[in-house]
Nucleic acid binder design. Structure first.
Length: 573
RNA sequence: UGGGGUGUCGUCCAAUGGCAAGACUCUGGAUUCUGGCUCCAGCUAUCGAGGUUCAAAUCCUUGCACCCCAGCCA
């Protein structure tokens, strides 16, 4: 497969992409060559089930699962459920659904950190016996004070030199639930003067008499991340423990615990997490958007959550391709949202069935079209993919066209319909606008046109060709649709950057426009949620789960690129 | 003023002492029954200052900027 070749780039459109070089691939490649792990690659994706996965997690998932896949290894899905206070079954389910939807398979390797609690507990006792862990009676507040600061060393706790026997006895009582929540902790005995604060006797266990979603009330103490994570990796035989940059400082601790216990010792490798323009990525902020009803839930189509993107109409392929293209490195960066949109359009262009729908209808009466006549016209389902075939669309003397495809006083470069001008109706006839009907308010409410019967199918015998082709829907056959036009959730490239951190001030109050009177061609009759279409000349749309029998609801996934909009913007503003 | 990281086009990201790639964005053009797609062309980059070398993004010295760390969160 040539996958061990050091190829750079080469992202030819559409086809499978060749991996971009990155430092993690390099490391694994080297390890494979040297036989460091016996030719095996084992990675893991270790989410804490305390929230929904978002596009940032998608990057991690692609790296974790992708690395294993690429080198013929395995990737474990492991719930890092060491804090029952925050975790919930709902999140476990959503995480599985999202990882699977993204296109990854953990096979039989779905694990829970909580399944290792027994083992981890034994190891803690071993560490105590080695004199490398102790029970501390200090309060949380005192521990903080004793820890020192970034520039000053910490102080030893008075409990630091307890005997092994006493520590063992106390720890057993902790585990038995004999002490109150928060009254004692087990700490590693490392170095209170370390310049790395993580090494100043980190807490290994805290007392927490909470109900665990899998363990019930069995445990009264729960291990901390730093203590548990390396052991979880070790138990599973992980070779490359990939995580984000903020854990770089924790690596010495990761290594220390595993070294003390002389167990299998994976290599922790850190990479930069994903930032995207025009969005926020922290769980806290996303939760706030949900809780304060700025959006309609975790799967609101404006959310960067995987469930939100799915509902918005993103394809897993487009997200995977995006994750490959952004690369993997160690520097903080913010990827242009336009790249995500590009990957989306690229994928949808290949796959989405074309269909005609009018989002802001304007009635058109074709005066010389025979009364009551209906013709069926062939239309191509996808010009990018002939195998998707054709369909028939009804044509009649009363149609809807898009309001903005007509201008009474056309500016320069406006090629669409205006009084006296001829345009082509997609797959249909050429029509010429003869009259404009207005209401009392002076608004255009109807157009009278004539058609040229010679131009059926879109070609004229005399070879003339209008500058514009517009889409349409036959009025008597039209389906009523609701269209939800979603836009960016934030106005600012970096929400909160210019508002003293108050990202809510950068919310785009126009991020959702609901259009209730849209018209669609009859082929849109039987659709199911997540079905994706291109509404010709407008954009990509997908069926929302809130569709009813009476009315199908479409979410605008992303608009088509729009040259005309650019021209307007340039001359207008 | 502790420790750990990172600085390459506007934005991502390559280069492993040997001609600074590619993608996205943007600009111009060709084509087109979608102002879509496609195609062609163009734009702009090695944080600064010294040094080593025939040759430096890469090595050395030094400075600067930015990110992370003082949870009984992960």
């Amino acid at each position: 497969m040539g996958k061990d070749e050091n190829r750079t780039d080469e992202n030819s459109k559409g086809e499978a992409t060749v991996p971009v070089a990155n430092f993690i691939r390099e490391i694994i490649k080297e390890d494979m060559k040297s036989g460091r792990w016996g030719g095996k690659v084992v990675t893991r994706f270790p989410p804490e089930p305390n929230g929904y996965l978002h596009i940032g997690h998608a990057k991690a998932i692609c790296i974790d699962f992708g690395s294993a896949q690429e080198f013929g290894g395995e990737c474990h899905l492991r719930y890092d459920d060491t804090n029952p206070a925050k975790e919930d079954q709902e999140y476990i389910d959503s995480i599985q659904r999202d990882v699977r939807w993204l296109g990854f398979d953990w096979g039989k390797h779905c694990y829970y950190a909580s399944d290792y609690f027994e083992k981890i507990h034994m190891w803690a006792i071993e560490l105590i016996k080695q004199g490398k862990a102790y029970v501390d009676d200090l309060t949380a507040d005192e521990i903080r004070k004793y820890r020192g600061t970034l520039t000053e060393p910490g102080k030893d706790s008075p409990c630091r030199n307890r005997s092994v026997e006493e520590n063992l006895a106390l720890f057993e009582k902790m585990a038995n639930g004999d002490f109150e929540d928060g009254s004692r902790v087990l700490r590693a005995r490392i170095d209170m003067a370390s310049p790395n604060i993580n090494l100043r006797d980190p807490v290994m266990y805290r007392i927490l008499k909470a109900e665990h979603h899998r363990q019930g009330r069995r445990w009264k103490i729960y291990p901390m991340y730093d203590w548990a994570h390396g052991l979880e990796d070790s138990i599973e035989g992980v070779t490359h423990s990939l995580c984000s940059l903020e854990f770089e400082d924790h690596r010495p601790l990761y290594d220390w615990f595993l070294d003390q216990l002389s167990v299998h010792h994976p290599q922790q490798i850190e990479f930069a997490r994903l930032n995207l323009t025009f969005t926020v990525m922290s769980k806290r902020k996303l939760k706030e958007l949900v809780d304060k009803n700025y959006v309609a839930g975790w799967d609101d189509p404006r959310m960067p959550t995987l469930s939100g993107l799915r509902r918005r109409g993103f394809t897993p392929e487009s997200i995977r391709n995006f994750c490959e293209r952004i690369g993997v490195a160690k520097r903080d960066s913010t990827v242009d949202y336009a790249l995500l949109e590009h990957c989306l359009r690229e994928d949808l262009n290949k796959k989405a069935k074309r269909v005609m729908a009018v989002i802001n209808p304007l009635k058109v009466v074709i005066k010389n079209y025979p009364e009551g006549m209906v013709e069926m016209i062939d239309a191509i389902n996808n010009p990018e993919d002939a195998s998707m075939g054709t369909r028939q669309v009804p044509f009649s003397g009363v149609l809807y066209i898009e309001k903005n495809d007509f201008m009474e006083v056309p500016p320069k470069k406006f090629f669409r319909l205006s009084p006296g001008r001829e345009v082509r109706l997609r797959y249909g006839y050429f029509i010429t606008c003869t009259d404009v009907v207005k209401n009392d308010a002076g608004e255009v409410v109807e157009l009278r046109c004539t058609y040229d019967p010679q131009t059926k199918g879109g070609a004229a015998p005399d070879g003339r060709s209008p500058k514009a082709t517009i889409h349409w829907v036959s009025a008597q056959h039209a389906l009523d649709l609701e269209v939800r036009q979603y836009d960016k959730l934030f106005n600012s490239e970096a929400p909160g950057a210019g508002t003293d951190g108050d990202y809510l001030k950068d919310l785009n109050t126009d991020s959702l426009k609901v259009l209730l009177n849209c018209k669609g061609e009859p082929s849109l009759a039987h659709v199911t949620p997540e079905d994706k279409f291109q509404f010709e000349r407008i954009g990509y749309f997908c069926v929302d789960k809130e569709s009813t029998d009476e009315k199908t609801v479409f979410n605008r996934t992303v608009s088509l690129k729009d040259e005309w909009a650019k021209i307007v913007k340039k001359s207008g503003a």
